Computed example of a mutant assay.
Amino acid sequence: MGKVIGYCRISDRSQKTDSQVDQLQAYGVDEIITETVSGVSADKRLYELIEQMEEGSTLCVLRPDRLARNTKMLLEVVEKLEEKSIDLVIVSLGIDTRTPVGKLVLTIMAGVSQWERDELKIKQKNGVKSAKKRGVKFGPKPQFEEEGLQWAMQLYQENHPVSYISKVTKVPRATLYRRLKERGITRQNKQQI
């Protein structure tokens, strides 16, 4: 059986690791790694620690929020651990992946997290459909007003160069050509300028 390494994290220097260290020592870890970094930071010493840990060792934390800010991030850490055949103990939840029940609980957490993501996608999709039915437009707002488009089409009919029209009206060339085609507008003088 490999080493059991305790990991404790605080978000800023105003906090203390003493309580976490005491509880991890009471749990019986072989070594404790501490760091001060925000829970959302992607640049944690934790990731270096996982890379350095040997197969068959165990990472032990008091609470899941010491590893990650949310379930999705926690499951990403769990995946890294699984890739390296490292077990995980989360003391406050009674999760110990060295046991079948601990593995089951993490599998259930992963399933619930995936279900939540799928449900959110469905809600977003339905919300977009509903908004489109009500006439809500999606995508970036045009940088030109409808009056600018009318002016651009008028300038086009007066045979002004398209580059000039786009510059002064802020109507993109593609938009101008599309609207002209939709309305069947052509230049008075067929010569392209």
Rank of each mutant, 00 (worst) to 15 (best):
S163A: 09
R69C: 10
L24W: 11
K121V: 00
V168N: 03
E83L: 06
K44N: 07
S166G: 12
D12A: 04
V136G: 00
I33V: 15
R69G: 12
Q188S: 05
I108S: 01
K125M: 01
P161T: 02
V37E: 13
G148M: 03
K181D: 01
E82P: 06
L106A: 09
L106G: 13
K3Q: 07
N70M: 08
I165Y: 03
V29Q: 09
V61Y: 12
T175C: 01
D22P: 02
K16P: 11
L49E: 03
P140Y: 06
D22N: 13
L155T: 00
N189E: 04
A110M: 02
K103R: 13
K125G: 00
G148E: 08
V89I: 07
E79G: 02
L180P: 03
P64M: 09
Q188T: 05
K190A: 11
E83N: 11
R187W: 08
Q114I: 04
C60H: 08
I33M: 15
Y47I: 14
A174I: 07
A42H: 11
I50P: 15
L67Y: 04
L46H: 09
S41Y: 14
S57W: 15
I165Q: 01
G28H: 06
S163D: 12
V91P: 08
T99R: 09
T34D: 05
S113C: 10
Q20K: 09
I33C: 12
E146Y: 00
K132R: 14
G111Y: 05
Y177L: 12
K190W: 07
S14E: 14
K137M: 11
Y156P: 03
R63F: 05
I108Y: 03
G56L: 04
K84I: 11
N70R: 08
T34M: 10
Q114R: 12
A174V: 11
E145P: 00
G135A: 02
G111R: 06
R13F: 09
E116T: 00
I193S: 05
K132W: 05
V162P: 03
K181P: 01
Q52H: 15
Q20N: 10
P140C: 05
E116Y: 05
P64E: 12
I185V: 06
S38K: 15
Q52R: 15
G39M: 08
Y27L: 00
Q192F: 05
I32L: 07
K129I: 09
R13D: 13
Q52D: 15
Q154C: 04
V40D: 15
R66C: 04
N126R: 10
Q191V: 14
E82R: 12
K44Q: 15
C60L: 10
A110V: 02
S38H: 12
I50T: 15
R45D: 08
V112Y: 09
G39D: 09
L46I: 12
T99Q: 07
D118G: 00
K125W: 01
L49P: 11
L62A: 00
R9A: 06
R63I: 00
A152D: 14
S130Y: 10
V78W: 14
G127S: 04
G2F: 04
I193Q: 07
M53W: 12
I185G: 01
E147W: 01
Y156H: 08
V29H: 06
E182G: 08
N189K: 06
P140V: 02
R45K: 13
L106D: 05
T175G: 01
R134F: 00
N70E: 12
R66Q: 04
Q20F: 13
V136L: 01
M1D: 03
Q124E: 06
